[in-house]
Design a protein around this nucleic acid. Structure first.
Lengths: 135, 135
DNA sequence: TAGTGCAGTCTCTAACTGAGACCAATCCTC
DNA sequence: GAGGATTGGTCTCAGTTAGAGACTGCACTA
């Protein structure tokens, strides 16, 4: 059996045991780190601890509202820690936990895939749009 | 330099060159396959080609609307193909392309991470909620 | 004859997201 | 000492998006 078949089999097993939310760890975790901003924030924090507004600047088009919300959820999931320094103006530092760092590896694999396959995907999109336009 | 530092550096490089949408392949691709349903559909199709409603049954709580939409976008990105058999009632088969199959590997890594770390994440959530409740 | 499955589309409503105002306190500039 | 900026948020309001469910047309089945 090829590595490919093995992979398919494992994925099939996961899908067979039910992908319904709650019960399934795959869903449960992917819904979280698979959203629009979480991955980006984790990547930004890979370089080291950063303060609230530094993260905001690093992820250009995130709103304060979404930044706060996403950071809270990542903190809740134990992927990062929040440390408040009682200075004035306040200073809050976010840094990855060991768990958060452990997420970087698979995420980097995905990002690498994205980078490598980006041209193919762009080409496919162009093809698709051209033939849709023709119709 | 450790593998960890190397990783951080690479991720930092990506974030440094600007994560703003459009330009950045990371954003561009991650926004796509990182949404709620795409990953799940790809996983379901890993086992082999499936018809529209078979996919719907495999991903329990997806609506027809979202299923159609997500399949269209995955087709547009060249990750899967759609083949219509002109029978009555109509039969439509979706199957992964080579590009789609190539995405399974990094995704499987992420899914494995999710599976392995799920207990830790659950524990972190419980801790967080308990201390939030106390306050 | 009513019901079921097929692959969708359409509409309406509920949920979520994003933009931007606002907060108190402190520092810097003029 | 007035005005502006920075700090890490919260709040509200509009706009976008997702989900639930009805509807389609045709064939098969009970």
């Amino acid at each position: 059996m090829s590595a490919d078949e093995l992979l398919s089999e494992r994925l099939a097993a996961w899908s067979a045991m039910g992908l319904d939310a709650e019960r399934c760890p795959v869903r449960n975790v992917l819904d979280r780190i698979g959203d629009k901003w979480s991955t980006l924030i984790l990547i930004v924090l890979a370089a080291g601890p950063k303060r609230f507004s530094a993260i905001g600047r690093a992820v250009p088009d995130i709103s304060k509202r979404m930044l706060t919300q996403t950071l809270r959820e990542l903190e809740r999931d134990g992927l990062l820690t929040r440390r408040v320094f009682p200075t004035k103006p306040p200073s809050v530092e976010y840094s990855l936990t060991a768990l958060g760092r452990s997420a970087l590896e698979p995420m980097a694999a995905l990002v690498q895939w994205a980078e490598r396959r980006h041209p193919e995907i762009e080409a496919a999109r162009a093809r698709f749009d051209r033939s849709a336009e023709a119709a």
